[in-house]
Lab assay of single mutants.
Amino acid sequence: MAAAAAAGAGPEMVRGQVFDVGPRYTNLSYIGEGAYGMVCSAYDNVNKVRVAIKKISPFEHQTYCQRTLREIKILLRFRHENIIGINDIIRAPTIEQMKDVYIVQDLMETDLYKLLKTQHLSNDHICYFLYQILRGLKYIHSANVLHRDLKPSNLLLNTTCDLKICDFGLARVADPDHDHTGFLTEYVATRWYRAPEIMLNSKGYTKSIDIWSVGCILAEMLSNRPIFPGKHYLDQLNHILGILGSPSQEDLNCIINLKARNYLLSLPHKNKVPWNRLFPNADSKALDLLDKMLTFNPHKRIEVEQALAHPYLEQYYDPSDEPIAEAPFKFDMELDDLPKEKLKELIFEETARFQPGYRS
């Protein structure tokens, strides 16, 4: 834990890192770190609560700039109880001085990944967590956004079992017609939660990839272990087919990539493993919904509104309290091709509203 900075004593240090967030945020305490930044909790002297502050230093890398800009653009436009918001952003007053960006968010005690390492969940908890994931996802999908990296560590939890989806750095506007060349190379989302079509096709992607990830998360809540822990690309596919069985001819016809289709045709026939054999203690309604989410063919996979209306979630289902976005989200430009200098300018502009004396 960093010592509390005395008023006016300059930035606090946390594990050798400068955290320049005073005077409003003090009493910093280390939480963890990701690929390009550290997260601390801090005391907000204005709202009198502890908050989470993520320090991001992305400006050396085009990919990190892209992810940072995506996350900020999306989260500043989203407003939903099951999606983490941005409360404040701290950065230098000029673009030349801006080396880091500090993002202030609600402090959540833990995440689903940490929880599943230590606790076996009751059916009631599984049901409530799944409902909140789908409630947040309904809003995301209504904005025409794909999260693309749903996994237990991106689901934040607090002691009252509130759940918030975080990390929109890989999110995209849904565009089933656009052929994202190089899709697989830039697709760094965790393999275990990846839909089979991501490994088999490169053309376009749809909201059904997020539903697949939610199915993987439900299976993990039922058993405290990942359902498809593939060691590499082909191993991942083999794990999936080992449980779902061989795809039907109709399902194979959806695979545009001939090499991928021929690979699947070359494999020995596998039978589907019954879900109640894998999860003998699970609620039968939970397994019915799991089956509809972990469907090989993305066109037959359940959609988020149908999933919310499934009998497993009937005690929570309330369409009048499951809000959607006001308007579909649009990125003005494809960020993939922009140089990091341009992305830095866009991050600077996007964060201006939090600067003292800002006038829109």
Rank of each mutant, 00 (worst) to 15 (best):
residue 171 A to W: 04
residue 194 R to N: 05
residue 155 L to Q: 15
residue 80 H to R: 02
residue 317 Y to R: 00
residue 201 N to G: 06
residue 201 N to H: 10
residue 65 C to I: 11
residue 261 R to L: 15
residue 324 I to W: 09
residue 211 I to M: 12
residue 212 W to H: 12
residue 313 L to R: 01
residue 155 L to W: 00
residue 219 A to L: 13
residue 251 D to E: 13
residue 278 L to K: 03
residue 284 S to M: 11
residue 92 A to N: 00
residue 114 K to G: 14
residue 282 A to G: 00
residue 43 Y to L: 10
residue 88 D to K: 04
residue 298 P to C: 05
residue 246 S to M: 01
residue 211 I to K: 13
residue 208 S to D: 05
residue 49 V to R: 12
residue 269 H to I: 07
residue 71 E to P: 00
residue 2 A to P: 13
residue 16 G to P: 09
residue 131 Y to V: 07
residue 88 D to N: 14
residue 59 F to P: 02
residue 140 I to K: 11
residue 331 F to H: 07
residue 78 F to S: 13
residue 94 T to N: 13
residue 332 D to N: 14
residue 31 I to F: 14
residue 26 T to M: 11
residue 191 R to Q: 15
residue 218 L to W: 11
residue 218 L to V: 08
residue 69 L to Q: 14
residue 100 D to M: 01
residue 130 L to G: 08
residue 90 I to K: 01
residue 59 F to N: 02
residue 141 H to W: 06
residue 21 V to D: 05
residue 32 G to F: 03
residue 60 E to P: 00
residue 153 S to I: 12
residue 115 L to Q: 15
residue 236 Q to E: 08
residue 201 N to F: 06
residue 300 K to W: 05
residue 115 L to H: 01
residue 338 L to H: 03
residue 222 L to A: 11
residue 263 Y to P: 03
residue 268 P to T: 14
residue 42 A to T: 14
residue 130 L to C: 05
residue 79 R to A: 07
residue 351 T to Q: 02
residue 339 P to H: 09
residue 281 N to Q: 09
residue 188 V to N: 04
residue 308 L to D: 04
residue 287 L to H: 08
residue 301 R to D: 04
residue 344 K to D: 11
residue 355 Q to W: 07
residue 354 F to E: 14
residue 220 E to S: 08
residue 281 N to C: 07
residue 356 P to D: 10
residue 112 L to S: 07
residue 95 I to H: 05
residue 25 Y to I: 06
residue 276 N to D: 13
residue 13 M to Q: 13
residue 233 Y to F: 15
residue 234 L to N: 11
residue 31 I to N: 14
residue 339 P to A: 09
residue 121 L to W: 09
residue 346 L to R: 02
residue 235 D to P: 09
residue 284 S to N: 08
residue 117 K to S: 04
residue 8 G to E: 13
residue 114 K to M: 13
residue 161 C to P: 01
residue 81 E to T: 05
residue 134 L to P: 09
residue 51 V to C: 10
residue 164 K to L: 10
residue 184 L to Q: 15
residue 129 F to M: 07
residue 308 L to Y: 05
residue 136 G to A: 00
residue 22 G to H: 07
residue 11 P to T: 14
residue 213 S to V: 04
residue 47 N to C: 10
residue 53 I to H: 00
residue 256 I to S: 08
residue 344 K to R: 14
residue 319 P to T: 14
residue 226 P to F: 02
residue 339 P to G: 07
residue 108 M to G: 04
residue 6 A to E: 07
residue 116 L to Y: 09
residue 273 V to I: 02
residue 224 N to A: 05
residue 7 A to Q: 14
residue 189 A to P: 07
residue 13 M to A: 13
residue 279 F to W: 05
residue 200 L to S: 13
residue 39 V to H: 09
residue 85 G to T: 04
residue 311 P to Y: 04
residue 22 G to N: 08
residue 213 S to M: 04
residue 40 C to M: 01
residue 187 Y to N: 15
residue 185 T to Q: 12
residue 213 S to K: 05
residue 61 H to I: 01
residue 51 V to K: 05
residue 208 S to T: 14
residue 200 L to I: 09
residue 193 Y to N: 15
residue 276 N to L: 09
residue 122 S to T: 02
residue 66 Q to A: 06
residue 329 F to M: 09
residue 352 A to N: 08
residue 92 A to C: 00
residue 83 I to W: 00
residue 77 R to F: 01
residue 9 A to T: 07
residue 151 K to Y: 04
residue 163 L to N: 05
residue 310 H to M: 05
residue 212 W to S: 13
residue 194 R to P: 08
residue 325 A to W: 03
residue 309 A to H: 02
residue 175 D to Q: 12
residue 328 P to Q: 05
residue 305 E to D: 15
residue 80 H to Y: 09
residue 82 N to C: 14
residue 10 G to V: 15
residue 286 A to R: 02
residue 139 Y to Q: 12
residue 171 A to L: 10
residue 245 G to C: 15
residue 300 K to A: 09
residue 162 D to N: 14
residue 249 Q to H: 14
residue 321 D to T: 02
residue 286 A to K: 00
residue 220 E to N: 07
residue 184 L to Y: 12
residue 328 P to D: 09
residue 300 K to S: 09
residue 357 G to K: 11
residue 350 E to D: 15
residue 301 R to C: 06
residue 26 T to S: 15
residue 98 M to W: 04
residue 352 A to H: 01
residue 275 W to K: 11
residue 201 N to Y: 14
residue 56 I to Y: 06
residue 30 Y to Q: 09
residue 74 I to A: 09
residue 267 L to T: 02
residue 82 N to V: 10
residue 61 H to D: 02
residue 266 S to T: 00
residue 184 L to G: 13
residue 160 T to V: 11
residue 198 I to D: 02
residue 141 H to M: 11
residue 244 L to H: 03
residue 313 L to W: 03
residue 335 L to A: 11
residue 257 N to C: 08
residue 319 P to H: 09
residue 166 C to V: 03
residue 326 E to K: 14
residue 27 N to K: 14
residue 37 G to E: 15
residue 319 P to M: 12
residue 199 M to P: 04
residue 13 M to L: 15
residue 83 I to M: 05
residue 76 L to I: 00
residue 358 Y to Q: 13
residue 314 E to L: 01
residue 177 D to M: 06
residue 268 P to F: 01
residue 257 N to W: 08
residue 262 N to Y: 14
residue 150 L to F: 09
residue 336 D to T: 10
residue 168 F to N: 02
residue 348 F to L: 15
residue 232 H to Y: 02
residue 329 F to V: 06
residue 255 I to H: 06
residue 214 V to C: 09
residue 35 A to K: 12
residue 105 Q to C: 10
residue 356 P to I: 02
residue 169 G to A: 10
residue 207 K to P: 13
residue 158 N to V: 12
residue 286 A to L: 04
residue 120 H to N: 13
residue 173 V to G: 09
residue 260 A to I: 00
residue 101 V to H: 09
residue 162 D to T: 00
residue 335 L to G: 13
residue 92 A to F: 00
residue 39 V to G: 01
residue 348 F to Y: 14
residue 111 D to S: 02
residue 93 P to H: 04
residue 79 R to F: 11
residue 159 T to I: 12
residue 340 K to R: 14
residue 224 N to L: 12
residue 196 P to I: 06
residue 172 R to C: 06
residue 111 D to C: 08
residue 168 F to R: 05
residue 185 T to L: 08
residue 185 T to V: 08
residue 346 L to T: 12
residue 66 Q to R: 11
residue 239 H to Q: 15
residue 291 D to F: 05
residue 329 F to A: 03
residue 329 F to P: 00
residue 138 K to S: 07
residue 278 L to C: 03
residue 323 P to Y: 02
residue 164 K to R: 12
residue 347 I to P: 04
residue 118 T to V: 06
residue 22 G to S: 01
residue 72 I to G: 02
residue 238 N to S: 10
residue 325 A to V: 09
residue 341 E to L: 04
residue 255 I to M: 08
residue 91 R to C: 10
residue 319 P to V: 11
residue 27 N to W: 04
residue 57 S to E: 02
residue 236 Q to G: 08
residue 32 G to E: 01
residue 146 L to Q: 14
residue 243 I to D: 01
residue 212 W to A: 07
residue 152 P to W: 10
residue 173 V to F: 10
residue 197 E to L: 10
residue 322 E to R: 03
residue 87 N to S: 03
residue 56 I to Q: 08
residue 96 E to P: 03
residue 152 P to H: 15
residue 206 T to A: 09
residue 176 P to H: 08
residue 240 I to N: 13
residue 8 G to W: 06
residue 356 P to L: 06
residue 88 D to R: 03
residue 151 K to A: 06
residue 76 L to Q: 14
residue 111 D to R: 04
residue 254 C to F: 14
residue 106 D to I: 00
residue 145 V to R: 05
residue 3 A to S: 14
residue 247 P to D: 01
residue 293 M to I: 15
residue 152 P to D: 06
residue 214 V to A: 10
residue 137 L to V: 00
residue 104 V to R: 09
residue 54 K to T: 08
residue 255 I to C: 13
residue 209 I to K: 10
residue 249 Q to K: 15
residue 128 Y to N: 14
residue 282 A to K: 02
residue 157 L to T: 11
residue 204 G to L: 13
residue 115 L to K: 01
residue 352 A to E: 13
residue 318 D to C: 02
residue 42 A to R: 03
residue 66 Q to L: 15
residue 255 I to A: 07
residue 324 I to H: 01
residue 130 L to F: 05
residue 77 R to V: 00
residue 230 G to K: 00
residue 12 E to G: 12
residue 133 I to E: 03
residue 103 I to Q: 09
residue 328 P to Y: 07
residue 170 L to M: 14
residue 302 I to T: 01
residue 23 P to Q: 01
residue 302 I to Y: 11
residue 344 K to N: 14
residue 89 I to L: 05
residue 93 P to W: 02
residue 298 P to V: 06
residue 155 L to A: 06
residue 188 V to I: 14
residue 183 F to M: 12
residue 109 E to N: 02
residue 213 S to C: 14
residue 340 K to S: 04
residue 275 W to G: 06
residue 41 S to I: 02
residue 269 H to W: 11
residue 33 E to R: 02
residue 258 L to N: 10
residue 266 S to R: 15
residue 158 N to M: 08
residue 140 I to P: 03
residue 351 T to Y: 00
residue 261 R to P: 10
residue 336 D to M: 05
residue 9 A to G: 11
residue 354 F to L: 14
residue 77 R to K: 05
residue 192 W to K: 10
residue 322 E to S: 02
residue 215 G to N: 09
residue 64 Y to P: 10
residue 13 M to K: 15
residue 314 E to A: 04
residue 329 F to R: 06
residue 4 A to E: 00
residue 297 N to F: 08
residue 143 A to R: 13
residue 307 A to W: 00
residue 196 P to M: 13
residue 357 G to R: 03
residue 10 G to T: 08
residue 236 Q to N: 05
residue 172 R to A: 11
residue 341 E to Y: 01
residue 279 F to T: 00
residue 117 K to P: 08
residue 64 Y to H: 10
residue 55 K to Y: 11
residue 360 S to A: 14
residue 241 L to V: 05
residue 16 G to Y: 09
residue 186 E to M: 02
residue 105 Q to S: 07
residue 263 Y to E: 09
residue 68 T to F: 01
residue 197 E to R: 13
residue 248 S to V: 07
residue 76 L to Y: 00
residue 147 H to M: 05
residue 19 F to R: 11
residue 181 T to G: 11
residue 296 F to P: 02
residue 52 A to F: 06
residue 6 A to Q: 13
residue 313 L to S: 07
residue 175 D to E: 14
residue 5 A to W: 13
residue 285 K to H: 10
residue 96 E to M: 00
residue 78 F to K: 10
residue 93 P to C: 06
residue 265 L to E: 07
residue 145 V to C: 02
residue 346 L to K: 11
residue 274 P to E: 12
